[in-house]
Amino acid sequence: MSRPTQAIIDLEALRSNYRLADSLAPQSQSIAVVKANAYGHGAVPCAKALEPIVPAFAVASIDEAIELREGGIRKPILLLEGPFSFGEVQIASEHEFWLMIENHNHLAFIEQCEHKKLICKPLKCWLKMDSGMHRLGFMPFEIAAIYQKLKSTSIVHDEIVVATHFATADVEGDAFVKEQIDCFNEAISGLGCLTSLCNSAGVMAWPQAHGSWNRPGFMLYGASPFELPQHNDKTLQSVMTLQSKVISVRNVKKGEAVGYGKTWIAQRDSRIATVTVGYGDGYPRHAKNGTPILVNNQRCKLAGRVSMDMITVDVTDVGSVNIGDDVICWGKDLPINEVAHYSGTIGYELMTRMPLRPSRIYINA
C-alpha cells in the first residue's frame, strides 16, 4: 500500500469556479489562467476539464504552453510574459499562442520575423501597459503609438487587446486601483481597442474594470484573493484537498516536548497524533504551533515543528483517534488561506509550491 498523502483535485469544483468568474462579468470573456502547473493542481488535467467551457487559456511562458499542446489542448493560449526570444515568435504563430507584448525587445522580435518573412499565420497580440504597478508593460504615453505600429504590422492580427495589471485590487475600495483604471482609460482613449484589466480580485470586486477579457486565476482553484472576506467568497469551491492519515498516537505528560527543537511543550497531559505529511509534501515548513488541521473532520492544532515527512497534532480534545484515521491539511472545510496565514505566507504560494510527491487524484472529470 502506498503512502496515504494525496492531493484530491475536484474538477467539477474547478468548472464551477470558472462559471462563477464568467457570470460576474457577463459582458466579458474569461480567460482561464493555468500557469505554474495550474497553481499546483496539474495543468493538463485542469485544462482538459475546462476546455469545453473556456475560450482561451493563459500561462507564463512558452514551455507551459507547449506542455498543454502536447497534452491535447487545442484552444488558444496566451503567454503572459511574452516571447523570450526571436524563435519563440515563430513557435507562437505555429501553435496559436497569443503573445503579450510588453517591451521594445518584443517589438524587435516581431519586426525581425516580418522582415525575414518567417510567419505563416497572423500573430494574435496583447499589448501590456504599465498603469502604475511598475513591473511589466509600456508606459501610458507610449501605448497609442505602439498600438498603431502593431496594427500596421503585416504579421499581426488586427484584433489587439490592450492589457494592464492591478497592484492592489485585493483591497476593497482601494484608491490606487481607481488611479490605475483612470490612467488606463486615458491612455487608450480614441483607440477603440479590446481591453483586459482584471485578475481574480478585479473580477470579484471591481466591475467597473471588467474589460473585453478578464484573467481569473487564483479564484478558479477555490480560494479567495482577498485578505478580508468578500461577498462572493462563499460561493467559491475548494478544488484541492490535501489529505493524509494518522500513523502513530501517543500520550505526552505535562511539561514534555514534541518535535525538533522542543518548540511545543505540553501544558497538560496530552494526546499527540503523528501524521504522514510534511514540507516534502508541500505542507508549509513555517506553520506555527496552533495551525488548524482536521482529524476525523474535527479541528485540532499543530503541535511542534513541521518535519520533512511528518507533523504532530494535539488531539487531546477530540475523542478517540487511532492509527489510520483521516486527516485534512486543507480543503473544503479548512481554507488554504487560513493555513497560509498561520504560516506567514499566502494561499498562492502553498498551491504553487505543491511538489509531485503527493499523488494527485482527479475526481468528477
Rank of each mutant, 00 (worst) to 15 (best):
M129T: 09
G190K: 07
P358V: 10
L334S: 06
Q230R: 05
S359K: 13
H115T: 13
C183W: 03
R15K: 15
V315D: 08
R305K: 14
I265T: 09
Y342Q: 08
S248V: 03
P26M: 15
L80Q: 07
G72C: 11
L68Y: 12
I311P: 04
L194C: 06
V277F: 01
G137Q: 05
R271D: 01
A340F: 10
R3N: 11
N105R: 15
A169E: 12
K254Y: 14
G202L: 02
K178V: 02
Q243V: 14
V177F: 13
G87C: 04
A167S: 14
E51W: 02
I155D: 13
K48R: 13
H231I: 14
E179F: 12
S2M: 15
M240Y: 02
G222R: 03
V239K: 00
V277M: 03
H41Y: 10
L118Q: 03
V258G: 04
L350E: 14
R357A: 09
K151N: 15
F184Q: 00
I62D: 06
L127T: 08
K149H: 14
K245G: 00
A273H: 04
F184K: 01
I247L: 00
M1R: 03
A163I: 07
K48G: 04
E64R: 01
T153Y: 01
Q208E: 15
F57E: 01
G278L: 00
M139F: 11
V203G: 00
Q230V: 10
R271Y: 02
L80K: 09
R305Q: 14
T5W: 13
H134W: 07
H341A: 14
S343C: 08
L68S: 06
E51T: 04
I311F: 05
L194D: 08
G132A: 05
Y342K: 03
Q180L: 02
E159A: 08
N297T: 11
K301M: 11
G72Y: 12
E179P: 01
P122C: 08
I293A: 03
G82S: 02
N251V: 02
G347E: 13
G72Q: 08
V275H: 00
R305T: 04
Q243P: 02
C120V: 06
K48E: 10
P292K: 01
A365W: 12
G87Q: 13
M100H: 05
R271V: 05
I188M: 12
L80F: 13
I363F: 12
Q112L: 15
G282K: 00
Q29T: 14
V162H: 08
L68C: 02
Q298G: 07
K254E: 15
K35G: 09
E179W: 12
K75V: 03
P229R: 04
N103F: 11
M354P: 06
M1F: 09
V258I: 10
P55S: 10
L220V: 05
R285F: 10
S248L: 02
R250Y: 02
P122A: 10
T312S: 11
G217T: 01
E51A: 05
A25Q: 15
